[in-house]
Amino acid sequence: MEGSIFDQERRQAIPWILWTIWKNRNNLLYAETQESPSLLVQRTLEEASLWNELNKAESIGGQLQADMGISKQWIPPAQGMIKCNIHASWRSDKQVIGAAWITRNHRGDVCMHARDALVPTPDKLAAEMECLLWVLRGLRDLRMEEVSIGTESQKLIDAVKNPARWPRYRCLLRQIEAVCLEFVVIEFEVESQESNKVVRKISTSVLRDGRLRSYLAMGGPAWLHNLIQTEVIG
């Protein structure tokens, strides 16, 4: 990996080459199929290049985000808009996802909140996409047409805005895009943990307290009343 006699692109692709060799071995032994080695190498170099470019962009974006800072105070939406804070609590690919959302108007008044247990996903980003899809469908069915989505996940927002750069999640992103088109206005903004505490606590309670039944209610949860007021007042 450190050998300078090889160009950087090939050195960075070594993990992908090893993984491709392993998969090709299994295909040969168990499925009796064999692809062209040149095609395998070409595909491997492309995947490695894409992965490194995405992570380079995320690193730069993360640094800019850290430099600019994210507000630690909950910021209300513009008048006429509804702000929906969301969170997905993911622990492993074998456990359900704790999902929750809460909507508020420009005065900070809570409109509705919901929680649910979603099917397990292979990673946290997929869990966040499943959560977003569940949220968007719920808001659409409730006839909310102008919405701002607040999430702690910059990766999720990047994936929604640039789906072509996230081919692994193509199916989920296409579904999200289709639902987004049904809104008159749909916006996304990054929240800090401090400004997303209420919905974070609701989603965490799904797994912690075994609240696995789907739940939708007017207003906010009574057990978080004080926190909701604190979050709005700042």
Rank of each mutant, 00 (worst) to 15 (best):
R143Y: 13
I86K: 00
N85D: 12
L139K: 15
R137M: 01
G138S: 15
T151G: 00
G150Y: 09
G150E: 10
K94T: 08
L39S: 08
M144G: 04
L29W: 05
E47S: 11
S49Q: 14
K56P: 01
D109A: 15
S38E: 12
E35F: 01
K155Y: 03
R140F: 13
R91L: 07
I75D: 11
T151E: 01
A31Y: 06
A66D: 14
G69W: 03
H106W: 06
L133H: 12
V119Q: 12
K94D: 08
Q63R: 15
Q42H: 10
L136I: 09
Q79P: 06
P76Q: 12
Q65P: 02
S148N: 06
T151Y: 01
S148Y: 00
V41F: 12
K155A: 14
I102F: 13
P120T: 09
A88F: 06
G69F: 09
E128S: 07
A57P: 00
Q73V: 11
A114N: 03
A66M: 07
G138F: 03
I149Y: 02
E130K: 14
I82S: 07
D109M: 09
S153Q: 09
E152S: 08
W101I: 10
V110L: 03
D109W: 05
L142N: 13
Q79A: 13
I60A: 10
L45M: 15
A88T: 05
H106C: 14
S59P: 00
A66R: 15
K83G: 10
S49I: 00
S92H: 04
A164T: 07
V135W: 05
L40G: 11
A100R: 04
G61P: 09
E145L: 06
Q95I: 00
I75S: 07
G138E: 07
L39N: 08
N105T: 09
L142G: 08
L132F: 02
I149G: 06
W51L: 05
N55P: 00
I157E: 13
A99Q: 06
T103E: 14
G62T: 04
W90M: 02
E58T: 03
I60Y: 09
E152R: 11
R143H: 14
P163W: 10
A48P: 10
G98T: 09
I86G: 06
A66E: 14
G138P: 14
G61F: 01
D158E: 11
D67R: 15
R168M: 07
Y169K: 03
Q154S: 10
N85L: 02
W134F: 05
K155I: 00
I82E: 07
G61K: 04
W51A: 07
E146C: 15
R168L: 03
L142V: 03
H113R: 04
H106M: 02
L40A: 11
L50W: 11
R165F: 06
H87E: 09
A48Q: 04
I70S: 12
P122E: 10
M144P: 02
M144N: 07
W101K: 02
T44W: 04
P76T: 09
E146H: 11
